[in-house]
Design a protein around this nucleic acid. Structure first.
Lengths: 138, 138
DNA sequence: AACGTAATTGCAAATTTGTCGCAATTAGAC
DNA sequence: GTCTAATTGCGACAAATTTGCAATTACGTT
C-alpha cells in the first residue's frame, strides 16, 4: 500500500523532472505514517538535514503533494487527495487525536459552489475540531 | 456597527476577567477592517509593540475571537462567527482576492457529522481556492 | 476624581523557524 | 561504470515568535 504510493510519488516526480532522493523519500514516508504532522515533528524525526526537509516540503507543496492546514491553532502539513485518500479531519482539541472524514456530498457541494461563482481548478480544505466523546466523559 | 462589535468585545473580555487595553482594541479594529489578514500585516500596521500584537492575537485565539486558516498557502487570521458573520472564504490563487461564502446547508451537515461521532463544542473551517472567472479569461 | 493594585505593556534579548550560498555528493541517463 | 546536472548537508543568515522584567495602565474601590 505504502510502496504503491512511493511508486506513484516517483513517477510523479520524474514526470516533472525531479529526482526521488533520500530526503524526499523520508519526508514522504513520514507523512504517510503521520498525517497530518507539524513541520517540527518532521524535521526532528527524519534522518535528513533540516534544510532538506524544508526544501522537500516546499517542493511537495508546489507540486500539490501536500498542503498546509491549521488544526487547533497549530499549523500542520497534510497529504492531498492524490497521495492519501483521507482528505479531511476531525480533531479533538483536548487529546489531540485526529480522525479522518469523508463526505462525498459535501465535497460535491463545495465544488459546485465554487464553479457556480466562476472558479476553475478548485481545491478545498475542511477541518473540524471539538471535544471528542471520550474526552467529554473523562 | 463596528462600535457595537467593540462593545461586544469589551463585555466578552470583562466577563473573562481580561481588560480592554489599547493594543487589544487596535488589533480588534484592524481585524474588523481587514479580515482575513496576515500576522505580518497586523504587526506592521498597528500602533502597538510587536510583542503586544502577538500577545493579543494569542489571547483572542484562546478566547475563540479569532482563528487561523491557511489560504493559498499563507497562514491568515480570521474573526470567528461571533465577531464577524462572514466565516468562510473563496480565494483566487492568481489575483489573491477573497470572497466570502455562506452555505447554511454545509454548515449544518458538518455540525451533525461531528456530533454523530460524539464530538461536542465543535467549530470548523472551510477554505476553497481556485482561479477566479476574471483571471481565467485574462 | 484620586488611589491602589494586579494585569498588561514596551523594550531588548533569547529562541525558534525558515532560507541561502556553496562545495561535496548522488540519482539517473547513457 | 561514467558523466553531469540536480540535490544534499553544512554553517551562516534572516525572519518570525516568545520571554523576562521594569514601567505603565485599566478599572474597581473609596
Amino acid at each position: 500500500m505504502i510502496l504503491q504510493m512511493l511508486e506513484r510519488l516517483e513517477q510523479y516526480l520524474h514526470s516533472k523532472d525531479y529526482k526521488l532522493t533520500n530526503p524526499r523519500r523520508e519526508v514522504f514516508l513520514h507523512m504517510q505514517k503521520h498525517d497530518p504532522c507539524t513541520v517540527q515533528d518532521a524535521t526532528l524525526q527524519i534522518k535528513a538535514d533540516r534544510a532538506s526537509v524544508y526544501r522537500a516540503l516546499k517542493l511537495f507543496r508546489q507540486l500539490g503533494i501536500v498542503h498546509d492546514v491549521v488544526i487547533g491553532g497549530r499549523r500542520m502539513i497534510e497529504l492531498t487527495d492524490e497521495f492519501d485518500s483521507h482528505h479531511h479531519h476531525l480533531t479533538c482539541l483536548q487529546c489531540g487525536r485526529t480522525e479522518t472524514l469523508n463526505d462525498p456530498a459535501i465535497e460535491q457541494r463545495l465544488v459546485s459552489l465554487a464553479q457556480g461563482r466562476g472558479y476553475q481548478n478548485t481545491s478545498h480544505q475542511i477541518e473540524i475540531s471539538g471535544i471528542c466523546a471520550s474526552c467529554s466523559i473523562g
